[in-house]
Design a binder for these strands. Structure first.
Lengths: 175, 175
DNA sequence: AATACTGTGTGATCCAGGTCACTTTTGAAT
DNA sequence: ATTCAAAAGTGACCTGGATCACACAGTATT
């Protein structure tokens, strides 16, 4: 889709960054300037409610993107957090640079439209699964889709993704 | 964003269509060629599971769009349905025409990227509310955001949107 | 007015999953 | 090896919401 020269230019706007397990990338209440493309490692985007309970919106594996897209697009304070589950490496793209690149190169805008559509469809699909399926099914669905998660991510976090307590998840396979 | 001439051209690709209560626009298993912009009236997009239970993904009110975006973008058979809750009027845009317009007019592609992002953020937000809040809260959140729904849409459908049984919804305010 | 259909209310019962409190395992750090 | 912290398992108990069954609107249709 992009010529070599265009890709070179596109790529030059990304900042490569190493990150360590536990490092916060986006914190609730802060400004959000970047979205992140995962080269290696694993991120999570999550929300903490008033009772300090965590809900995970997304595990971002290699080739996935993560950010607080509401805050990023509308220049408002973050309402969700993004941090690192493992060490790894990522490419950072600022909102300004993305918009600039989208303006300058039509195909870049096309790319981001399709990526966002993919995310939208995935979110709707997850919503349906939430309404339709019980925990066990959703857990197996998740592991089928991302078998790596089983080894990388503590069960607590998987429970927070599935929207159940860690006890319930534990009891699924230790009745 | 668009010049008058561009808008004229853009608009010329939409087919205006009147629709009646109960009319199906997209049916599971069929091909999906269009997305729909609601001028007046109200649509629902929904999924029916093996037990014939309905789950509503979206109520589409005026100025909203609806389709099976997965099927539409990937030219696969519909997995979700869209039909009309009330009489009304809509503008139909074919997938081919959207892609053509996006190719021809950069700003159209920009528009659809932003629209899709908005949908993505809304879906994520609903997912969070699902995990975080109980039925009563979600019901009141919904009515606060779309007070019209209360009069237009039967409670059964609201229950199917909230992901609870109609009995439970009824008991919320008739204990 | 009688019929039929769609939307609701409501009681009784059941169960998936939550919560709390405690124990055990694992794994990293000294 | 020892210590400490994070993760995971487990028992007892509670509760929101599902399910089933039936009653009671409204509002078309004949």
């Amino acid at each position: 889709m992009l010529t070599d020269g265009q890709f070179e230019y596109f790529y030059s706007h990304f900042k490569r960054q190493a990150f360590q397990k536990g490092q916060a990338l986006i914190t609730e209440g802060d400004r959000v300037d970047y979205e992140y493309f995962v080269v290696s490692g694993c991120l999570k985007s999550f929300f903490i409610n008033d009772d300090m309970k965590m809900f995970i919106l997304q595990f971002a594996m290699p080739t996935w993107w993560a950010s607080d897209y509401n805050a990023l697009y509308h220049r408002t304070k973050a309402t969700i957090n993004v941090d690192c589950i493992t060490d790894g490496e990522l490419l950072c793209l600022s909102n300004d640079d993305r918009e600039k690149l989208c303006r300058e190169i039509h195909n870049v805008e096309h790319f981001f439209r399709w990526r966002t559509n993919k995310g939208f469809v995935a979110a709707q699909k997850r919503l349906l699964s939430f309404m339709n399926n019980n925990v066990k099914y959703r857990y197996e669905e998740l592991l089928e889709q991302y078998p790596e998660l089983y080894n990388i991510v503590p069960k607590q976090l998987i429970a927070a993704y599935l929207g159940v307590s860690r006890e319930t998840l534990s009891r699924l396979y230790h009745p």
